[in-house]
């Protein structure tokens, strides 16, 4: 069953890759056209979120060093990719039910379009973040290629969480509320505005249960501390993402021709 599902998934990916690619580009274009400032919002949104955190933790709590700004920007940017990717991916199927009620398409298609669209926006912002870090004195170093592994692990984690959630959200709108509540909690527990060193030793194990905590620390290790990320902090989200993504594909295939019998369009 799993082998069949996986081979069907791979065949479909080849068949539908063009749809995913061009709908992702169309989605970005369509999104930018909704606003007067267009594509500028892709950059402005994380910049404003970082500025809010800087106002609270930098200005009010008096920590205005350049390193802290870069520290915050890294945490906030990768967190926003995670949040947007999962939230938008989760709603991918639900939003396109009118299409899915007419055309037989795999149920992971639209979640993937949403995730890739969020990923493109992040890629653009991340390049700006790396340039900003350089301007602040954190030049590219020999560990930069390792960023690709960390980025890959995070993308897989996003896909792994978004796909099963997209299935659940198609049946039950409650899923969205549950996920958003969990995200609100994780936002404060991922080390976006504090370093993992500040977490008490006895709580560290629990802190790292959240895969984003390890990933954010890995990005900072490479960009700020010019060191290799700790292997376990990258392997854990990578493995978790892999297992969850396979589970998500199995769920999507399992509901493929059943979904439209259970939901109203």
């Amino acid at each position: 069953m799993t082998n069949k599902t996986l081979s069907q998934f791979l065949t479909n990916i080849v068949r539908y890759k063009d749809i995913v690619w061009y709908r992702t580009l169309a989605q970005l274009k369509s999104e930018s056209k909704q606003f007067y400032l267009g594509y500028i919002w892709f950059l402005l949104e994380p910049a404003l979120a970082t500025a809010t955190l800087f106002l609270v933790f930098g200005v009010i709590l008096n920590n205005k060093s350049g390193e802290f700004v870069v520290f915050l920007v890294i945490g906030m940017t990768v967190w926003q990719w995670f949040e947007a990717g999962v939230n938008e991916g989760m709603m991918g199927t639900k939003m396109k039910l009118p299409i899915l009620s007419q055309i037989p398409l795999p149920k992971y298609l639209f979640p993937l379009v949403q995730i890739f669209s969020a990923t493109w926006k992040f890629a653009f912002v991340f390049m700006v973040v790396l340039t900003f870090a350089w301007v602040c004195g954190f030049a590219p170093n020999k560990h930069y290629p390792e960023l690709l592994i960390v980025l890959g692990a995070q993308l897989l984690l996003i896909v792994g969480i978004a796909l099963p959630c997209s299935v659940a959200a198609s049946y039950y709108e409650d899923t969205m509320r549950v996920v958003q509540s969990v995200f609100r909690l994780l936002f404060y527990l991922s080390g976006i505005f504090f370093s993992a060193e500040k977490v008490p030793e006895e709580l560290k194990m629990w802190f790292y249960v959240n895969p984003m905590a390890g990933l954010i620390e890995s990005y900072r290790a490479i960009i700020l501390h010019q060191s290799a990320p700790e292997l376990s902090l990258v392997l854990y989200p990578l493995m978790l993402g892999c297992v969850m993504a396979i589970l998500g594909v199995i769920c999507c295939v399992a509901i493929d021709k059943k979904l439209m019998k259970s939901v109203a369009v």
């Binding site: 749809i19 061009y22 274009k29 369509s30 056209k33 009118p98 299409i99 007419q102 055309i103 398409l105």
Partner: peptide
Amino acid sequence: VGLEGHLSGRENAVLNGML
């Protein structure tokens, strides 16, 4: 089905045909 309001008729024709 699936027309994107912010995109042109031409872009939508291609995307719709692909779907």
